[in-house]
Design a protein around this nucleic acid. Sequence first.
DNA 1: GTCTATATCTTGATAGAC
DNA 2: GTCTATCAAGATATAGAC
Lengths: 213, 213
Amino acid sequence: MDDGKKSIAAVDERPVRRRKSPKGVIRREAILTAAMQHFAKDGYQNASFASIAADVGLSLPGLLHYFPTKVDLLLAILEKRDTDSTSATGEDYADWRKVLLGLIDVAKSNREIPHVVQAFAVLNAESLTQDHPARSWFASRASQLKGNFIHSLQKGISAGELRSDINTEAVAVELISIMDGLQMLWLRSPEEFDMVKVFSDYIHRLIASIECR
Amino acid sequence: MDDGKKSIAAVDERPVRRRKSPKGVIRREAILTAAMQHFAKDGYQNASFASIAADVGLSLPGLLHYFPTKVDLLLAILEKRDTDSTSATGEDYADWRKVLLGLIDVAKSNREIPHVVQAFAVLNAESLTQDHPARSWFASRASQLKGNFIHSLQKGISAGELRSDINTEAVAVELISIMDGLQMLWLRSPEEFDMVKVFSDYIHRLIASIECR
DNA sequence: GTCTATATCTTGATAGAC
DNA sequence: GTCTATCAAGATATAGAC
């Protein structure tokens, strides 16, 4: 199950003729895209709401018609990411090897969308600051990711494929850390090294270290 | 990734008249400390210059007397970090094993100064944004760190202690990535896991994987 | 060195017309 | 749905007195 554009049109309260209005939905999508680029460029706090509006050919109040506040816009982006990524990750956290190798594919596709990666890398760190509106989102995202990794690794141990003495939580934390850290380093100088290669090297070395021999 | 306990303790308020400068130097130190806490809490862009001034008992123009602009204050902090860390890191990038194990000590001392770690983690990501005043500093910091790691690993290969087929650049990038990523994850929930343990596990596994057997 | 007062800019958000 | 006009709040920075 995926999609991504759901019951957004329901918020549309047109008293006059009109039943679904794909137009509004398209606008919304355009706004989200523009906003993400701005957040990537300036971060959330520093991005100008008005500039985002201008980018989609709207005035500031025009944009406010769709997103009553700047925070709403941010949350909409995060929510969209939620639906997008669940549709992408989808399935088997049961096969630890598939999970780990699948991360390489994630890195591979991330390489094609640097502005999205940058938006989320910047927001990720920015959300560490006090009372940041995205704070809890990133916290639960990390927590869930970690839980999934632990689950996979635990399954591997139970199946006798992974060494029983590995610290699953430590490995899970390590995985998230290297993914996030690598993205930042890569964003700083995309030409300097092959992000996918580095990550692939790492994953294969990790697998060799933790699987039963 | 180090630094921390500097001479901020010298807060002795002697009302004696002094014509030279120790007073001014102390003030400067106090300002830098306060600023770092604010940058940790709000990031650079979002931190208020006036609030920093208030924190050290100055008005905004009073603070501007010491740092003519907000950017100057930021750069002073970065510079301080430079001197602090070079005095701490000191020497032998020749012994790869000492270097790698030494990073565990860095993690250990970082655990004691979360606000400093947070300031630099936030600034690190924030500096990815366009025209950020700390951009080049973080870029060259990463570049230098990477160069040092590569140098150490290369020495290890030459000495016949490390496998000659390892990609030194990839390992160097990996090291920086995991350090930076781990810090962020830890800052988000410091109680959830033992950062030093995770990092130590990683380092030892890395060593086992790359050294000659 | 440090202040009060102020200039100037930019931001997010509102009011109300069309 | 979208606009013009406007607001109130916050920021950095300057001028000039003490």
